[in-house]
């Protein structure tokens, strides 16, 4: 039997103007990230000191930075950095959180008690201190960023899924599944998972821009992606240092950040409605 018809969910998503806009924006960023080498007019790392701090021109649509690097190319490659870090980090954290949440919510109660204790302990650590401590110990970089994000976000995802699972484990349809002899993995994967996934999907898609921002912020502080590598945060930092001479740089670097945030947030909202057959139904009762 088929998985709850994804074409229908897609149709419902496109029918919602916000959802459709989110999908378009996110798709644009994904295309930008995937096809960066084709789309970017210049090598994002190539220096051209003679062409430094140029304004908008046909040769350099969004100008250049103080080292003469093409801003547009750096932003396009920056999308790659931003998306790969944020999607990987939230994806890993979401998967682990989902697993832990399901186990805590549906498993034996002693296991739930242990897991809640561990999750609460992680949550009790000051987030910024933890991030800075990890960066200090293993040094800044892409891997460090992902590790920090995963560690910090697992507890909230796991708690979300646990709460959803706890409220569903007593639901009559779960009892009905047990009554026809469904195994625990079957109940977890086919009946609980689809029903708890919706809220997680929206939280994840709304967290992706937060991670993009975090990456930009830490990179801006030189604690994230290391400088020559193009990242929106690095471009923003470069723009900030030359904001008096060349203000276009800051605006150009800020725009994709804002658009990506909006895109993922809209998509998350749209997905929440589209994934729920009760809300997406167009058929009258």
């Amino acid at each position: 039997m088929p998985w709850p018809t994804s074409p229908r969910a897609l149709k419902a998503l496109l029918a919602d103007p916000m959802g459709a806009m989110g999908l378009v924006l996110v798709s644009l960023f994904v295309i930008m990230a995937l096809a960066a080498p084709i789309l970017a007019p210049y090598d994002p790392l190539a220096l051209n000191v003679r062409a430094k701090l140029q304004g908008l021109s046909w040769a350099h649509w969004l100008g250049t930075d103080q080292l003469g690097r093409d801003t547009l190319s750096r932003l396009i490659f920056g999308a790659r950095t931003a998306l790969s870090i944020s999607v990987t980090a939230t994806g890993i954290a979401g998967a682990i959180g989902l697993l832990l949440g399901l186990i805590a919510g549906y498993g034996p109660r002693w296991l739930d008690a242990v897991l809640v204790l561990v999750l609460d302990s992680v949550n009790a650590l000051p987030m910024m201190m933890l991030a800075l401590a990890i960066i200090t110990v293993i040094g800044p970089g892409t891997f460090t960023l992902i590790l920090v994000v995963v560690l910090v976000s697992i507890p909230s995802y796991a708690r979300l899924i646990r709460a959803q699972t706890l409220s569903l484990r007593r639901a009559e349809f779960i009892l009905a599944e047990r009554a026809i002899g469904a195994s625990t993995p079957r109940i977890l994967l086919r009946h609980l998972l689809p029903n708890v996934l919706g809220p997680l999907v929206i939280v994840l898609s709304m967290d992706i821009p937060v991670v993009i921002m975090l990456e930009a912020g830490l990179s801006y502080l030189n604690l994230g992606v290391k400088p020559p590598m193009p990242s929106w945060g690095n471009v923003l930092y470069d723009g900030y240092t030359s904001i008096r001479t060349s203000p276009t740089l800051v605006i150009a670097a800020g725009a994709p950040l804002v658009l990506a945030t909006l895109g993922f947030t809209f998509l998350g909202e749209g997905l929440r409605d589209a994934l729920d057959p009760r809300l997406a139904s167009t058929r009258p009762r």
Partner: peptide, 16 residues
């Protein structure tokens, strides 16, 4: 087999 009190709620909501 068992028939449940709330017929709609006893059917897994995301399955046909």
């Amino acid at each position: 087999a068992m028939m449940f009190q709330d017929a709609v709620a006893s059917l897994s909501p995301r399955m046909t």
